[in-house]
Amino acid sequence: RAAAGRALGNLGNSHYLLGHFTQAILFHKQRLAIAKEFGDTAAQRRAYSNLGNAHIFLGRFDLSAEFYKKTLQLSRQLKDPLVEAQSCYSLGNTYSLLQEYEKAIEYHLKHLTIAQELGDRVGEGRACWSLENAYISLGNHERALHFAEKHLEISQEIGDPN
């Protein structure tokens, strides 16, 4: 049954990469059920993350946000700051898609803090870019400029001319 769980997860990922998002969700939900049965929190975390990603491409941003919140909660439980940062970044982008910019900013700021703690300059640059855009959407140009300047500085440092 543990192997069946892994196979279901792999099937979910294969369908996802083929762009079969509804099929992917069916497999990841079954994978999640087996992970819960075994009390396997790492596998539950992966399933929630995969479910969040698949729902984005079906335009169900509300459901993605719920799955990403579960991912975030489990990443903290598992003390995995890399996944915690990724979950915050996903939540920030999802709330931008939902046009809930205050919430987007809340999560992008959390992502920024973790990226700084981890010394992840690429992540920090992406957080600044996202914050710059979210503040523009809110009409807060002063904060947008602050993050645009940081984004420029980091892009030059890491050699990203784009």
């Binding site: 892994r6 997860g9 792999n10 990922n13 990603n53 970044y89 982008n93 959407s137």
Partner: peptide
């Protein structure tokens, strides 16, 4: 407003492009 929305979307679009190939593997 439309321009703001377009600016908003570029970082999100980039994230979605990366997301297409992102899976949490078993």
């Amino acid at each position: 407003v439309q321009r703001m929305h377009l600016i908003q979307m570029d970082s999100v679009q980039r994230w979605m492009e990366d997301l297409k190939f992102m899976t949490d593997c078993e």
